[in-house]
């Protein structure tokens, strides 16, 4: 494997966004790119990352290799990379370590780290292709704000999506709160759009602790997409350049 990223920033942010949810995971490398799928310990949330080969310049991977990595250790190594550094990830065929090289843009500093790999026996889960009843795209910063505000009211949020908009409701001991985003297109700045497509109305409840955790990915993308169907896990997607993505799945709360 040899994969070079123009800016370490992307990889730093991806790892930062998932490291509190999952601790040990396999980065599955093959000729299509670097993928990761891992569930949290409580089996409530799942992270699915894809960094396509096109994200790297260049990308070369001659055979499928899983790189079992402790994300806490990887975070320590990535601290040494500045956001604008060129990052190269390298590994041998049957590796004991993954090699990370950080080069300053002006090329007067080269840092090289070897990170020990772990044997991780991780089962791969099939995520069924789902035609979601509702998808809502919105500014990622707005979603983060809504989740963190409502977490002060309650540990759960009910998300209701209709043709009119998407509503987040929290009911807590101190009172209730709700935020509605109406569909709109900002002609000057499409990053501010709220776009809803709906085949049937949905209403589901989720843990805000997990949703605020997913929002650690906010810096990766201007927009976030929520995909919902009644009685199936929510998908929260941060789309990245070159068809790469960071997706989170969250099991709904079950009504009594």
């Amino acid at each position: 494997l040899e994969a070079r990223l123009e800016a370490a920033d992307l990889f730093k942010k991806v790892v930062e966004a998932i490291k509190d949810l999952v601790q040990h995971c396999n980065f599955d490398c093959n000729d299509s790119g670097i993928a990761l799928q891992a569930m949290d310990n409580s089996h409530v949330a799942l992270v699915s990352m894809m960094l396509t080969a096109d994200t790297f310049t260049p990308f070369r991977c001659d055979r499928n290799i899983p790189l079992g990595i402790d994300l806490t250790s990887l975070t320590k190594v990535l601290r040494a990379a500045q956001s604008s550094d060129i990052l190269t990830i390298k590994s041998e065929d049957a590796p004991d370590v993954v090699n990370l090289v950080f080069e300053g843009k002006d090329q007067d500093r080269i840092s090289e780290y070897d990170l020990k790999l772990m044997d991780i026996d991780q089962e791969h889960l099939g995520i069924p292709d789902t035609e979601y009843a509702a998808t809502a795209s919105m500014p990622a910063a707005d979603f983060k704000r809504i989740c963190s505000d409502l977490l002060l009211i309650s540990e759960a949020v009910s998300i209701e999506c209709t043709k009119e908009g998407i509503t987040f409701k929290a009911e807590g001991d101190i009172g209730n709160g709700s935020v509605t985003l109406r569909q709109h297109s900002d002609l000057e700045n499409s990053d501010k759009n709220v776009d809803i497509s709906l085949t049937e109305p949905v209403a589901l409840s989720f843990s805000l602790k997990y949703l605020t955790g997913f929002c650690k990915a906010t810096g990766l993308s201007n927009q976030v997409r929520l995909c919902l169907s009644n009685d199936v896990p929510l998908m929260v997607e941060y789309a990245l350049a070159n068809n790469s993505y960071l997706r989170f799945y969250l099991a709904p709360k079950i009504g009594d």
Partner: peptide, 14 residues
């Protein structure tokens, strides 16, 4: 108060 579901019933091992 509702309980928390898990992903196991939706996503099966490959």
């Amino acid at each position: 108060i509702s309980g928390q579901g898990t992903l196991g019933e939706f996503f099966k091992p490959k």
